Amino acid sequence: MAIGVAAAGFFLLCFVALIPWLPTAFGQAAQDAGEPIAPLQPSEATDAAKVSLGEILFHDARLSGAGTVACASCHDLDAGGDDGLERPAGADGKPLDFNAPTIFNVSRNFRLNWRGEFRRIEEQNEAALLDPNLMGANWNELLPKLQGDAGYVRRFAAAYDSAPTRDSVLDALASFQRSLITVDARFDRHLTGEKGVLTSGELRGYELFKEYGCIACHQGANVGGNLFQRFGIFADPFADRASEDDSDLGRFTVTGLEQDRHVFRVPSLRNVALTAPYFHDGRTASLEEAIGIMARTQLGRQLPRDDVAAIARFLNTLTGEYRRQGPGEAPKP
């Protein structure tokens, strides 16, 4: 099936935007195989003491000012690494601006959050901890809590040879989050040469994914997460709204540049079958509907129902595995 003229132009637009990220996005193995998607490699987080400490912190509600929410409250590791809500509730009980993105494979994104305002996990973690609408913590209160806990004192001493500090707390959290890589997706096994791991319908979905041009923005090892793009190239996704709110403006609220209006970080499609609802505002819980929205707004295409279903079958093969020690409740300090 040939890509339409509009979709081909969009592919070129995305490809030019992607050029600075080609070396890290694709990986040598994918280039050698001629595929635009590369298998995920295992975590680069190798310090077991720091990863273990970070996991405990990630699940500890004492990191929030009110002691009621933890990082895991919005990023459930027993599900898709998000909270399954359109938008999580803030400290005041009102919905926050954005759908909670998955924490899985977060270290493989070139920027963090929907607007991409953060480059480093530590930077994003601190912003979430101190934001009064998110966790509402402050270091003057948080550090004494941790320093007064014998279990934490012991673990920080083992991992950092010191009492808990701002830098070590942020480093431990980031070390754990860098370990959250979901390897061994069926599609990765297919890429590495395993025969018969995908059905003919799933393979057909992948071919359509490439032929329609979806691959332009969703490629590399993380199947996205490596460039910015405007939401609404060929159709206005906000046309049915009386007015837009700040979250719809995308990176415009960060840069103030008109060309950044409605521009967002392209999300990874890893584990996408588990991370509904979709888009920055959680507008749909249907993967098939999300595919249709993307086809209309980004490619200028109305896809046949059978093609949508085939692409959804392919996307289901991107679900990987995260093998936690002792799944369920996190260990206590």
Rank of each mutant, 00 (worst) to 15 (best):
residue 1 M to S: 11
residue 2 A to S: 10
residue 2 A to M: 07
residue 3 I to Q: 15
residue 10 F to L: 10
residue 18 L to T: 12
residue 19 I to F: 09
residue 20 P to W: 05
residue 21 W to Y: 12
residue 24 T to A: 14
residue 24 T to Y: 13
residue 35 E to L: 15
residue 47 D to A: 14
residue 52 S to I: 08
residue 62 R to Q: 14
residue 66 A to E: 08
residue 67 G to P: 03
residue 69 V to T: 08
residue 69 V to G: 02
residue 76 D to P: 01
residue 87 R to P: 00
residue 95 P to H: 03
residue 95 P to A: 07
residue 96 L to E: 06
residue 98 F to Q: 05
residue 103 I to S: 10
residue 123 E to P: 02
residue 124 Q to D: 00
residue 129 L to Q: 05
residue 134 L to S: 14
residue 134 L to C: 13
residue 136 G to S: 13
residue 143 L to N: 12
residue 150 A to Q: 12
residue 152 Y to A: 13
residue 160 Y to C: 07
residue 162 S to I: 03
residue 165 T to N: 09
residue 169 V to G: 14
residue 174 A to K: 13
residue 175 S to K: 14
residue 179 S to R: 06
residue 182 T to S: 04
residue 185 A to G: 14
residue 188 D to I: 06
residue 194 E to W: 05
residue 208 L to V: 04
residue 211 E to K: 10
residue 212 Y to C: 07
residue 214 C to D: 05
residue 214 C to R: 05
residue 219 Q to P: 00
residue 219 Q to R: 15
residue 219 Q to T: 09
residue 227 L to F: 04
residue 230 R to M: 12
residue 231 F to R: 00
residue 237 P to Q: 07
residue 238 F to N: 08
residue 241 R to D: 07
residue 243 S to P: 01
residue 252 F to T: 08
residue 255 T to A: 05
residue 257 L to F: 10
residue 264 F to V: 04
residue 264 F to Y: 14
residue 265 R to T: 12
residue 266 V to L: 12
residue 274 L to E: 13
residue 281 D to P: 04
residue 290 A to D: 00
residue 293 I to P: 00
residue 300 G to H: 10
residue 305 R to E: 13
residue 308 V to N: 03
residue 315 L to N: 10
residue 318 L to Q: 12
residue 322 Y to E: 01
residue 323 R to E: 08
residue 325 Q to S: 02
residue 325 Q to E: 07
residue 329 E to K: 08
